[in-house]
Simulated scan of single mutants.
Amino acid sequence: MATPFVKMHGLGNDFVVFDARAHALPAMGDGLAARLADRHTGIGCDQLIVIEAAQNDGDARMRIYNADGGEVEACGNASRCVAQLLGPSKVETAGGVIEMNPAGDGATVILPAPRFDWDAIPLAYAMDTRDMPVGWDGLEAPSAVNVGNPHVVFFVDDLEAVPLKTIGPQIETDPLFPDRVNVNVAQIIGPDRIRLQVWERGVGLTRACGTGACATAIAAMRRGHVGRTATVEMAGGTLTIAWREDGAIAMTGPATTAFRGEVDLNAFA
C-alpha cells in the first residue's frame, strides 16, 4: 500500500513529512527513517517528520528523525514547514509545545524559553554556559543553550576560516555532551546581524538550521553582541529571531513545498 508524503524545505534544510493521523505508519525508529532519508536509495532528506495525534493539550504532535535515524527533540525549519500543513496550531514535540503561525510563504514559530543550566543542555559536568572554559583546535569559550535541543555556539572573526566539516563531528560527539550536540559557528557582522554555519547533530553540515539560528541569536543576545531581535544569515537564506519579553523565542522565515508523492514503506522494511 502506498503511503503519501510531502517533501518540503526551509532554506534548503529538507524534510519528508508523513501525516500519521490519516495513515498509520510502522515504527520509524527501527532504521526505517534512515533508509527513507538516504539520498541515493531512499526519498532523501535531512530529517523525516511524522505528524501524529496530540497526546496532551496540543492540536497535533510532531516527531523528528535525523538522517541517521535517531529521534530528536526539535527542528525549527521543519516546524515552519509543518505550520504550512496544519495552519495556526499548538504542536507537541519532545522539546516542548510550540506555537505555529503560518503567513504567506512562511511562518512564525514560537519556541519555549531557552534553558541555560548546565544539566539542561545537558553537559557532563557543571560549568558556566555563557562563557564555557573549554575549546577545540582554536575554537574557544563557546556558549551553550537548549532551545528544545542542545546547541553549542562559537563566535569567531572569520567564519570561512573554520574547518567545520572536520571539527564539527569531533565536538558533536565529545563526552562533554552526553546527548551529543549541534555545533554552531557564528560571526557578528552588525548590531542586529549574524552569519552562521551549523554542523547538525545526526545530519552533518546543513544549509540552514532553525534551532541553530535561535540558539546562536540567543547566545549573542546573552553576551550583548546584538539586541533582542536579530537576522541570522545562513547558506540557505535568512531567519529573523526575536527573544520576547515573556522569555519565548519567535522565529520567522520561509517554508516551501517541493513536491508530494507516495511511497511503499514495505519496500524499506
Rank of each mutant, 00 (worst) to 15 (best):
I218L: 11
P169I: 10
G224A: 13
I121G: 06
R223A: 06
P178W: 09
A124C: 13
M132G: 05
V232N: 08
I194N: 00
A217M: 14
P133K: 15
A230I: 03
M221I: 13
W243N: 08
V226W: 00
T216W: 07
G227Q: 11
V181Q: 03
I189R: 13
G168L: 05
N184D: 15
L205V: 05
T231C: 14
G135L: 05
P163I: 03
T173E: 13
P169W: 07
T216C: 14
P142M: 08
Q197I: 11
Q170K: 15
L123M: 07
V156D: 00
T238E: 15
A126L: 06
A144F: 04
M234A: 14
F116P: 00
W243L: 12
N149P: 07
R193C: 13
Y125C: 12
Y125I: 06
N149C: 10
F155S: 03
R228A: 15
G190R: 08
L164E: 00
I249N: 04
K165F: 01
T229G: 03
W199G: 05
I218G: 00
R228I: 09
I171W: 01
I218H: 03
E160Y: 06
P122N: 02
E160H: 13
G190L: 02
V147S: 11
A161M: 02
V162W: 02
I188A: 09
P169A: 10
I218D: 02
I167A: 05
R228C: 06
G204S: 08
T229F: 02
W243M: 15
G212W: 01
V134H: 10
I218E: 03
D128K: 10
D117C: 08
I194R: 02
H151G: 12
T216N: 08
P114K: 09
T229L: 06
R222G: 07
G237N: 12
R180M: 07
G148C: 10
P122G: 12
D119A: 13
G236M: 04
L176S: 02
T238H: 12
E140T: 15
D179K: 11
Q187W: 03
A161N: 00
E140Y: 05
I167Q: 12
G227N: 07
N146P: 12
R223M: 04
R115I: 07
Y125P: 01
D131L: 15
I167W: 09
V198T: 15
L239G: 04
P122V: 11
G227K: 08
T229H: 09
T229V: 14
E172P: 04
A113C: 04
G212H: 11
L139Q: 02
L123N: 04
V145M: 06
N146Y: 14
A230L: 13
H225T: 02
W118Y: 10
I249F: 08
L239W: 01
V153I: 15
E172K: 09
H225D: 06
E200P: 14
P191H: 14
D157C: 04
C214N: 07
R201D: 01
M132W: 01
N184T: 07
M132D: 05
I171T: 06
L196M: 09
E160K: 09
T229N: 07
Q170S: 09
I241S: 04
I218T: 11
G212C: 10
P142R: 10
E172I: 10
W118H: 04
T240N: 15
A213F: 06
A219P: 03
V147H: 05
